[in-house]
């Protein structure tokens, strides 16, 4: 043992090794510098948002631009939630997002089951058409969707957003579920069938419970795209009663141009659910958002 250590130590002292070591040290310093700078560039806007959400205009505009707040003004949050209506917008976003997630999970898992486990004419075609939906930019459908919802007298309601959000999330959700269900052995269905399970029983008792990981991926993906969506929320909803958080922030910043504190508070409020979720399950969220690209 001792001999070995000595040998290693000796080797370290030979000049060539020392140079190599210095080089490695230099390059790793460089690596951490680059990574550190980029991390700072990513964290700084958030740090700034948190701090100015607690400051008075006086601090934001001169006294203390980037430091921690000297006086913690929680009244900014109160203002944003009550006067700025953020509480209502949050609730609206929560309702729209929640229902969209539930509908997407049900509809996408059902469709996946029909597309992969049941045998019927035209299922390949239907699958291909749905997969085409992955490449279609949703913006391109905005006018017809607006006109259809207008005809159905559904503008300015929660459905006005829930229906398009569910439809536009379907292609991706079905693709994620498809990729997962192929790994569930068909023998399980057969065994259940022999034990007397019906086609519905197989879906509810075998497939659905086993699909949980895929469904949580879909739920995360749907949550983020609904919570953050702007264009549809802006166009399909006019009535402040149903306004969601992203449009709400826009309204607030339009009316509070000279008061940054409450706007900062509103931004923090809107971001908070996402960041909480992210701090608990960062890897899962990263995978959910990049799931679409793996096959793309």
């Amino acid at each position: 043992m001792d001999k070995e250590i000595k040998a290693v130590a000796n080797e370290f002292h030979t000049p060539t090794k020392a140079i190599v070591r210095k080089k490695i040290k230099f390059s790793s310093i460089l690596t951490y510098t680059v990574l550190g700078i980029w991390a700072a560039v990513n964290i700084f806007p958030l740090y700034w948002m948190f701090t100015f959400s607690l400051k008075s205009n006086k601090e934001i505009f001169g006294d203390n631009i980037i430091g921690l707040p000297k006086e913690w003004l929680f009244s900014n949050y109160k203002n944003a939630l009550t006067k700025g209506n953020m509480a209502l917008y949050m609730l609206n976003s929560a309702i729209v997002t929640g229902i969209t997630i539930i509908l997407t999970l049900i509809i996408a898992s059902m469709a996946t089951y029909a597309l992969t486990r049941l045998v019927w004419k035209g299922r390949k075609t239907v699958n291909n058409i749905i997969m085409l939906g992955l490449t279609i930019p949703i913006h391109a459908a905005i006018l017809p969707v607006y006109l259809i919802l207008d005809k159905l007298k559904m503008l300015n309601s929660y459905q006005a957003l829930i229906i398009p959000y569910t439809a536009f999330g379907l292609a991706m959700s079905i693709m994620i579920c498809n990729g997962f269900i192929v790994n569930i052995p068909k023998e399980l269905d057969e065994a259940a069938c022999i034990d007397g399970c019906s086609v519905y029983g197989i879906f509810f008792r075998i497939i659905l419970p086993l699909m949980k990981p895929a469904l949580s991926t879909v739920a995360i993906f749907t949550f983020l795209s609904c919570w953050n969506e702007l264009m549809f929320a802006n166009i399909l909803i006019d009535d402040a009663k149903y306004r969601t958080i992203s449009v709400g922030i826009q309204t607030l910043s339009g009316t509070h141009t000279t008061e940054w504190g409450p706007i900062g508070a509103a931004l923090v409020i809107a971001t908070f659910p996402t960041l909480i979720l992210y701090s608990f399950m960062s890897t899962k969220i990263q995978k959910s958002l990049t799931a679409g690209a793996v096959k793309g």
Binding site: I106, I107, M110, A111, A114, V126, I129, A141, V145, A167
Partner: peptide, 13 residues
Amino acid sequence: FILPASLLFFTII
């Protein structure tokens, strides 16, 4: 099983 998805997909996309 396929109806809800295809209905939505057809009318909204």
